[in-house]
């Protein structure tokens, strides 16, 4: 059930990012109903939750809310990846490949280590 709700959040956000313009719960509902049976209140609840999470902004127009994505998906993703890399202070949270970033010299040394190896079984 929880997983389903997460899927719905993702589906709604993807549509909001696609619209690139404000949309009401009714707009999103009609869009979603092309793929699945879904109740107005469910969509309303999830969109309210997304608003509380800070993903959707909203304003009241004619006694109904009109929602809009606060930032692009790419911006959110970049931010999530940045915090993932920056959370090295508490690695118990996420385990990331190479928290440290390489200098160009170190990168060259790495490439060189791979170059001397016979290229058998290697595809580039």
């Amino acid at each position: 059930m929880l997983r389903g709700l997460g899927d719905l959040e993702s589906a709604i956000m993807d549509r909001m990012w696609d619209y690139r313009q404000p949309a009401s719960v009714r707009d999103v509902l009609e869009d979603l109903r092309r793929d699945r049976q879904i109740a107005y209140t469910t969509v309303m609840t999830v969109m309210d939750k997304l608003h509380k999470k800070g993903l959707l902004g909203r304003e009241a127009v004619n006694r109904a809310y009109v929602y809009k994505a606060v930032a692009t998906k790419a911006a959110y993703t970049a931010e999530l990846m940045r915090t993932t890399l920056a959370s090295g202070g508490n690695q118990a949270a996420t385990l990331v490949h190479f928290l440290e970033r390489l200098t160009p010299e170190e990168a060259a040394a790495l490439e060189a280590a791979l170059e001397v190896f016979p290229p058998k079984g290697r595809r580039t």
């Binding site: 440290e100 390489l102 200098t103």
Partner: peptide, 12 residues
């Protein structure tokens, strides 16, 4: 690449 952090690539 990072220019600020020096001895990072050792583990890599």
């Amino acid at each position: 690449p990072a220019f600020s952090l020096g001895a990072g690539g050792e583990t890599a």
